[in-house]
């Protein structure tokens, strides 16, 4: 039950691949983050313990190379948190709470790391 009217929102498809290779395609509302798309759809590879405040690094993902240039630049707080990821940081590491879903990102593929904490 929701207190607010639900109007269908435009979505983009985000592809989440687990470290073990399991693939899930999810329609994520435009404007939500890649992290929210994961937790709202029960993708366990993303924990997001701070809820998107860029205070933890438990929504760490590896982004498929071809999408890297379409992402917003890494801000200072994300850059610092990326130094604290539990699984190794790679050149394509991002915090998924800092990646708002846009139409341009339709089809974005991310891989979750072996562990977040």
């Amino acid at each position: 039950m929701s207190l607010f009217k639900r109007t269908p929102k435009p979505t983009a498809t985000i592809v989440y691949r687990s470290d073990a290779g399991q693939v899930r395609e999810v329609a994520v509302p435009i404007g939500n983050s890649v992290m929210e798309g994961a937790v709202n759809n029960g993708i366990d590879g993303i924990v997001a313990e701070c809820g998107g405040a860029c205070m933890c690094a438990t929504c760490h993902v590896y982004v498929d190379e071809e999408f890297l240039s379409k992402l917003p630049p890494i801000a200072e707080d994300e850059a610092e948190m990326l130094k604290t990821t539990f699984s190794p940081r790679k050149p394509n590491s991002r915090l998924s709470c800092q990646l708002p879903v846009t139409e341009e990102l339709d089809g974005l593929r991310v891989t979750t790391p072996p562990a977040q904490q």
Binding site: S2, F4, V39, N40, G42, G51, G52, A53
Partner: peptide, 29 residues
């Protein structure tokens, strides 16, 4: 989550549903 209640939710940036930590299916699964 409580932290967004005083911030993103009340500012209208997020709806109340988005504060739910995990959907019902998570608990069933």
């Amino acid at each position: 989550q409580r932290p967004p209640l005083s911030k993103a939710f009340l500012q209208g940036k997020h709806d109340i549903e988005s504060t739910t930590l995990r959907p019902e299916t998570f608990y069933i699964d």
